[in-house]
Amino acid sequence: MSESTVWWLLAGVLVALELSTGTFYLLMLAVGAVAGALAAHAALALTGQLVVSAVVGLALVVGCYLVRRRKPGDPSARAERSVNLDVGETLQITQWQDDRTASVRYRGAQWTVLLREGVSPEPGLYRVTELQGNRLVVDKA
């Protein structure tokens, strides 16, 4: 069996593993194996094939990792309006406590309101951004 055939089989196995596990990184390693197969077709020595495969696979994995790391994560279900109808509603806060909480009458009941990090506690209009347990997390409206 030729070296290029081994590389193509390895690429196929990596693609099959990626399909069964759902990890995108295995697909990048499969592309590295394809690069190794192309290097074998170009008559590079086994060392050259390994280096080409490793460099291409590693570069793609690192690139994929960096791209995914830059994108913000999915918002919490507690912060989606389709899950929690309180998200997006506005509240009038008249006084904040020292621990960055307030008590407000909302929907016929007394609620504890938490101020999102980075927002200064001052009286005014606030928008509900998330529900944490039985507390409303708010941001300046």
Rank of each mutant, 00 (worst) to 15 (best):
V31R: 01
A43H: 10
A33C: 11
A30L: 07
A39S: 12
L26H: 07
P72H: 09
A30P: 06
P75D: 13
L29Y: 07
V52I: 14
L50E: 06
R69T: 12
G48L: 02
A45P: 12
G57H: 09
A40H: 03
A43G: 01
V34E: 08
G36Y: 08
V34H: 04
R70L: 13
G32L: 07
A37Q: 07
T47P: 00
V56P: 10
A40Y: 02
V52D: 03
S76W: 11
V61Q: 03
K71T: 12
C64I: 06
F24D: 10
A77Q: 14
A79C: 08
Q49D: 04
L66E: 13
E80N: 06
A54E: 08
L58F: 15
G57V: 09
A33H: 12
A54S: 15
M28V: 00
L29E: 07
V52G: 01
E80Y: 02
R81G: 08
P75I: 13
Y25S: 10
A79Y: 08
V56G: 09
D74M: 13
V55E: 06
L26Q: 05
A30E: 11
T47I: 07
Y25F: 15
A40M: 02
L29K: 03
L27G: 15
E80P: 00
A33G: 10
R70F: 12
G32M: 05
V61C: 10
A40T: 05
A45G: 15
D74Y: 12
A42E: 03
A45T: 07
G36F: 07
V31A: 15
K71I: 11
S76V: 03
Y65A: 10
A35I: 07
Q49G: 04
T47G: 14
G63N: 02
G48E: 05
A35C: 04
L58C: 13
D74K: 10
L50H: 11
D74V: 15
A77F: 14
F24C: 00
T47L: 07
V31N: 00
L27E: 03
V51M: 03
G32N: 07
L26W: 13
D74R: 11
A39H: 05
V31H: 01
A33F: 14
P72K: 06
V34P: 08
L27D: 08
A37V: 04
L26G: 05
P72I: 03
A77T: 14
R70V: 06
R69Y: 13
A30D: 09
A37T: 06
G57F: 12
L66F: 13
L58D: 02
R68D: 09
K71R: 15
A54V: 11
H41C: 04
S76G: 05
L50I: 15
P72S: 09
L26F: 15
A37I: 04
Q49A: 02
G32S: 06
T47E: 13
L58I: 12
G57E: 08
